[in-house]
Amino acid sequence: MLTTTGAFGGMSVRDVPEAVRFWRDVVGLEVEDGDIARLLLPGGGHVILYPKADHEPASFTVLNLVVPDVAVAIRELGATGLEPERYPGMPQDEDGAMRGHGPDIAWFRDPSGNIFSVLTD
């Protein structure tokens, strides 16, 4: 069996300074700036944000942020100009949240086009 001392995730971005500003100033997470930035997650984990010249946005959710209330999170992110992603065929309400099919959840995109969600635990 593999012995590990920790773990972290990573996602490519088209522009690290732009990603740092977004995650810090729009979403409100702590970020350690650098050529490869570290997005510090509540609870102690982190995700590296690394530049990729031929960046293609992920077609899946790369990060899930647990919030107490999805409707409040949608309003808070909306106040910064972010709108939830809408997916054809998904039972999303007028706010853009999907409710009653597991945790309440809404999806958004970062400036690089990567998908992240806010959801209840």
Score class of each variant (00 low, 15 high):
residue 36 I to Q: 11
residue 17 P to W: 01
residue 60 F to R: 09
residue 120 T to A: 07
residue 86 R to A: 06
residue 27 V to S: 00
residue 45 G to N: 12
residue 104 D to Y: 01
residue 60 F to Y: 15
residue 93 D to S: 03
residue 58 A to S: 13
residue 31 V to L: 03
residue 26 V to A: 05
residue 59 S to I: 15
residue 110 D to H: 03
residue 51 P to G: 03
residue 121 D to A: 14
residue 17 P to C: 03
residue 81 G to M: 04
residue 48 I to F: 08
residue 80 T to M: 13
residue 39 L to N: 01
residue 110 D to A: 05
residue 58 A to W: 07
residue 101 H to A: 09
residue 7 A to W: 15
residue 4 T to Q: 14
residue 80 T to Q: 14
residue 53 A to F: 02
residue 73 A to E: 13
residue 114 N to L: 09
residue 46 H to D: 14
residue 60 F to A: 11
residue 98 M to A: 07
residue 108 F to G: 01
residue 60 F to T: 10
residue 119 L to M: 14
residue 115 I to W: 13
residue 7 A to Q: 12
residue 101 H to F: 10
residue 36 I to S: 04
residue 43 G to D: 10
residue 43 G to Q: 11
residue 34 G to M: 07
residue 2 L to W: 14
residue 28 G to N: 14
residue 65 L to M: 09
residue 45 G to T: 05
residue 49 L to Q: 02
residue 93 D to N: 10
residue 96 G to F: 00
residue 46 H to I: 06
residue 19 A to T: 02
residue 4 T to V: 15
residue 46 H to P: 03
residue 16 V to K: 03
residue 98 M to W: 00
residue 17 P to F: 03
residue 84 P to M: 08
residue 111 P to E: 04
residue 86 R to L: 13
residue 33 D to I: 01
residue 113 G to Q: 10
residue 109 R to G: 06
residue 101 H to K: 05
residue 110 D to F: 01
residue 88 P to S: 12
residue 76 E to L: 14
residue 44 G to M: 09
residue 116 F to D: 02
residue 33 D to Q: 14
residue 25 D to L: 10
residue 85 E to R: 12
residue 85 E to L: 15
residue 31 V to P: 03
residue 106 A to L: 07
residue 32 E to L: 15
residue 119 L to K: 13
residue 97 A to Q: 00
residue 51 P to D: 04
residue 43 G to E: 12
residue 54 D to E: 12
residue 88 P to I: 05
residue 72 V to Q: 15
residue 94 E to V: 04
residue 26 V to Q: 03
residue 72 V to Y: 12
residue 74 I to S: 01
residue 20 V to W: 01
residue 73 A to R: 07
residue 66 V to Y: 12
residue 65 L to I: 11
residue 116 F to A: 02
residue 118 V to M: 09
residue 22 F to E: 00
residue 97 A to F: 00
residue 86 R to V: 11
residue 15 D to M: 07
residue 11 M to C: 08
residue 104 D to M: 00
residue 11 M to R: 01
residue 42 P to H: 12
residue 89 G to N: 13
residue 44 G to E: 11
residue 31 V to S: 02
residue 107 W to E: 04
residue 38 R to C: 12
residue 47 V to K: 00
residue 23 W to L: 00
residue 42 P to Y: 09
residue 100 G to V: 07
residue 77 L to K: 09
residue 49 L to A: 05
residue 77 L to H: 09
